[in-house]
Design a binder for these strands. Structure first.
Lengths: 349, 349
DNA sequence: CTGTTAGCGCATTCAC
DNA sequence: GTGAATGCGCTAACAG
């Protein structure tokens, strides 16, 4: 039972406003407003008075009121499939870094790889009037896409090369990257190459990688594809292990396994160790994404490095130009920035 | 008197506002406002008219204007050290889940394990007037702490049991959890137990774990601590491997290594495999956090599970009660929720 | 360098 | 069930 003190106690009223500060400092609110932003010309004595008042009152600028007036909210929305994935975390970091000092903050949301959840997030972000929005991938719900198209702010799709982009793109072809990996394994002498991925197209980048695998196999004249679909994307390490077991059961002759991501590749690799299956002698394993785990595991895992941080950084740079364009009422044309990927040959293949 | 451009012009001016919708639907803005929130009583014919106008105009509610008026911003700020850490990602997910349907959104920021960056983030979050703020850990800059104390909103510190909490706490004692791990190893017969962690106290939870290690060793009468500090926290897998090398060089008699997190433990484990050092026969390895990697690696890694998701979920639940209290002008008393941890014995020890 | 005026787009409060 | 007036806290634009 909590007993509240009598009403005579200082009632913690609403937080101080700019006029409280102005009154205390003996100036107008406009002067306070100027003092609190940088760049304005203020007598240093006035500024000091104001800062003292700010400190004493514990005043914190109310940006939501400010942006209503200035039409600048000072943030960009960024939607990623998952936080628990160092690839997207790196992209988020690159984006944040690129926006350093621009006065723009990144507000992150995660979609759980679901375009329905993406749609919800797009809407709730737009309600807060971001100055730009970054999404992962080029596949959206119809309404999500419409929201993006009509948002009236720069839109950047990342991690993909959508056939029909909303506007700007910073990404790479997941299919192509997977093809490169198949060719690499082929060059190393592997022929009976399998693919391990999730059961649905929920992870569109994963689906594209499978597509690339199939295309490359076809192009190399390797008709027999060996595909294991197991688990809801994104598939976990453990699921990677189980999928490998199935792959070996179903096609005992398989020589190499390409996994949809490094995490499942790691799971597959550990399953091999556990069952005393020699990697890469009995079966080679390759992943995707160049997570730290792939360079650090033993044997180290052959993978495709995709420059996640760079995707974020270049997204940020493009964003800044696009926002500048909007502010100057001279929107820039849609741009597509294609980022690098690279097959990293390691011990597992 | 401001003259709005004639409705016939197609100039893509600023995005449509509620009055545009109201005019198009032939009602007042107030009716639109009601129709767009749930629960209000509106004639269904009116609502339909309004929804049609909303659709045609592609109108999206401006929440920043709304919250200026209603004093409810509809979001809570959550600061985590890193996104690229499945533990904190799980906590974020738990928090988000707990807030489902409450009309509150989580806005994430990451501090990079730096309390200076945390301070900046606290301030920029507060400028947007969150309805509550969640921080990770109990250590803040002086100004950061003051900002939290004066924020006038519920504050929850997580992942820790600060000696002097700002207000609410949802966490556990990292030191105690590390002690439990030491006792577990002791019980298994290990005596010469080492500890691998980062070089500074930047990661305060890591520092607490080292403290717990030292305390437990002392309590068990094991005077000789063997501590390797290597790399800026949070230390990586690779650094875990290098640290293990140093540990073995410096104390060749060491029988077990406790690593500050599962990631460094994994790095240490892989280093052993690479160098043909038998785990756990020659040296046992234990981690912290129960990341997926620890259950999936071979050998699987002994660790401490810390219920990350639960920390988030219970933080969310506490948050909802606290915000309810604020809205009813009956602030709830400071609470401390202690979450479970558990030593998970696996093959590596 | 500083103040005044006039909204930003919405929700609250009270009418009807 | 709906509308009118009013103000949330701040800043743009201009005046001085």
């Amino acid at each position: 039972m909590v007993v509240r003190p009598a009403a005579t106690t200082v009632v913690k009223a609403s937080p101080p406003t700019m006029s409280d500060v102005a009154r205390k400092a003996g100036v107008s609110t406009m002067t306070v407003s100027r003092a609190l932003r940088d760049g304005a010309s203020i007598a240093s004595s006035t500024r000091e008075k104001i800062m003292r008042a700010v400190d004493e009152l514990g005043y914190v600028l109310d940006q939501s009121a400010g942006s209503l007036s200035s039409k600048r909210t000072g943030f960009v929305a960024a939607l990623v499939p998952s936080l628990n994935n160092s690839n997207f975390a790196d992209t988020a970091r690159g984006l944040t870094d690129a926006l350093q000092g621009s006065g723009l903050q990144v507000l992150l949301g995660y979609t759980d790889y679901l375009i329905e959840k993406e749609e919800e997030l797009i809407e709730s972000m737009l309600r807060r009037r971001p100055e730009a929005i970054v999404v992962t991938g080029g596949r959206h719900t119809a309404r999500g896409r419409k929201l993006l198209e009509n948002a009236g702010i720069p839109v950047i799709e990342t991690w993909d090369l959508p056939p029909r982009p909303v506007r700007h793109v910073v990404g790479f072809s997941n299919a192509e990257a997977a093809e490169a990996l198949v060719r690499h394994l082929h060059q190393k002498g592997y022929r009976k190459i399998g693919f391990i991925g999730g059961t649905s197209n929920r992870d569109t980048r994963g689906a594209d990688r499978r597509l690339g695998y199939e295309r490359a196999m076809g192009a190399l004249g390797l008709k027999d594809t060996r595909i294991i679909s197991f688990g809801t994307p994104p598939i976990s390490m453990k699921q990677g292990g189980e999928a490998l077991t199935r792959l070996l059961e179903q096609w005992p002759d398989v020589e190499a396994a390409i996994c949809v991501s490094d995490l499942s590749a790691f799971g597959a690799l550990m399953e091999c160790r556990r069952r005393n299956i020699a990697v890469p002698e009995r079966i080679a394993i390759a992943g995707f994404g160049d997570f730290e785990i792939s360079s650090c595991s033993y044997p180290a895992i052959t993978t495709v490095s995709v420059n996640c941080y760079d995707i974020g950084r270049r997204t940020g740079e493009l964003l800044l130009r696009a926002i500048e364009g909007e502010r100057a009422r001279k929107p820039i044309a849609g741009e597509t920035v294609i980022t690098d990927y690279e097959v990293i040959a390691r011990e597992s293949a």
